[in-house]
Design a protein around this nucleic acid. Structure first.
Lengths: 202, 202
DNA sequence: ACCTGAACACCGTTCAAGT
DNA sequence: ACCTGAACACCGTTCAAGT
């Protein structure tokens, strides 16, 4: 029983299909093969194993962020770092399930190298640059970890967090008092606020 | 064929065995059952599914950090946050494979709530507190993502990173020039440096 | 309540054989 | 080089049945 279309099986098309399956939480070699009209074993002609597919996917996703925002954009280096980081967050949050792979392949991939070099141009102290990477990737990883594979709008995710968040006011007074702010931890506003603070210290 | 010891099957003992298996990269329901002298199906008496075991493990691991460093330690609030963060990093880096679960269950678990409340006591602005969480957990997640499940000493990991790191000096001049510092991104020194900078801005 | 035995519905990967 | 068919060695989870 062949279920998928047969045309144009190449690494690019494979990654398109793989990303689609990853987003729906069902990236298996068997499902991917079926999408491409292939048998599972045929995939090993293109990639050595499943992990290689996920790594390639991670680097490709990184490449979807608009690097010109960091390189040629208007404004100060800090402003360009903020603009690129906001764009990167937007791109990566469209595929939360890929975030673990992004953390894993963070610096090895070819695209990651180009992003890194551009960041060092904007922020020459490499220790400072890494601090920014940690903040940006850390914030996105925390958001992605609780987002479903289907990314709801930010406002709805915050409302859901607020509704689900209840703590004993006696035992956790500070936490209880901060509930609204805590629900908004995943907001663009919080992301930008923290990033600006971090950059101001570097 | 029974392979494991039979005595004392309770949730605590299960989590001990589960952590051990997670560290060696082989946490499966079948392996866990065998360790406990049980059949796979018997595990579902204690936990509803595999994910519940991993979540419980994550919260338990968080509890191994010494919260008194944050609550009652000497020094300024910032110094206590640094001391606790260094301790947390040490604890979590003993079990890198658990880091994804830590990110996922970051705020829901009972231990996580206590840690959060203590952090808010030291750093009352919740937006500032979250920025610290993002930095600390982000840095540990990036380190854990590339560490093997068996945690080598830090010095060896840095040396291995330095040896493996080669880039085209023409195409990536800044990256090439920063190679030594980049190799040391996973160092305690870099972790502390970044954290101090972040705290100084909050 | 706790556990077994057995099954169900899957996985990733390999490999001889074909084209 | 690319692909099939078939197998190997696994998975998590369910469930009737026993104690």
């Amino acid at each position: 029983m062949k279920t998928g279309p047969r045309r144009s099986v190449n690494p690019e098309a494979m990654l398109d299909a793989a990303l689609d399956l990853l987003d729906t939480g069902g990236l298996t070699m068997r499902a991917l093969a079926s999408r491409l009209g292939l048998t599972p074993g045929a995939l090993y002609t293109y990639f050595p194993d499943r992990a290689a597919i996920v790594s390639a996917l991670a680097d490709r996703l990184l490449g979807q962020a608009d690097l010109t925002l960091l390189q040629n954009g208007p404004g100060t280096p800090d402003e360009r770092i903020i603009a690129f980081s906001l764009n990167l967050r937007e791109v990566l949050m469209r595929h939360p399930a890929a975030m673990p792979a992004i953390l894993g392949a963070a610096f090895t991939g070819p695209v990651a190298l180009r992003v890194g070099e551009s960041l060092y141009e904007a922020l020459p102290d490499p220790r400072a640059a890494y601090t920014v990477m940690v903040y940006v990737l850390g914030a996105i990883a925390l958001e992605a970890a609780e987002a479903g594979s289907t990314p709801e709008p930010e406002a709805e995710r915050i409302a859901a967090r607020r509704a689900a968040f209840t703590v004993d006011p006696e035992a956790f007074p500070h936490t209880h008092a901060a509930a609204d702010t805590i629900a908004a931890y995943i907001s663009t506003e919080q992301f930008r606020w923290g990033l600006e603070r971090v950059l101001s210290a570097l």
